[in-house]
């Protein structure tokens, strides 16, 4: 996943919260709390960076914490909160 391009699903709205953000999927009606500001920055930055690794670096996440973040992103992917970015999607 680290070397793959991802992006926020188009059906997801991110609402800033004091603890991070709330992600709501209008399609499957799933709700997920993002409990760290750094994770919010990573998720918001996915579309702007070549891959997950670049988004983690840009958000200032220490490399030692990347496995935890990748697990969290995998959880978000399982809920369709984030999706693999296609080549078409990469050219905005």
């Amino acid at each position: 996943m680290l070397g793959e391009p991802w992006t926020l699903s188009p059906a997801v709205a991110l609402r800033p919260e004091p603890f991070g953000a709330m992600a709501y999927h209008f399609g499957n009606r799933k709700l997920t709390f993002l409990k760290r500001m750094e994770l919010v920055q990573v998720v918001r930055g996915l579309a702007d960076h070549a891959d997950v690794r670049a988004a983690l670096v840009a958000a200032g996440v220490p490399e030692a914490q990347w496995p935890g973040y990748v697990d969290a992103l995998a959880g978000l992917a399982a809920a369709d909160m984030i999706r693999p970015r296609t080549m078409e999607g990469a050219v905005a």
Binding site: K30, F33, K35, R36, L39, D71, G75, L76, A79
Partner: peptide, 13 residues
């Protein structure tokens, strides 16, 4: 830092 400390899924139902 674990997945559980980063995200929490909520059942709206």
């Amino acid at each position: 830092v674990t997945s559980e400390s980063l995200i929490e899924e909520v059942s709206i139902d």
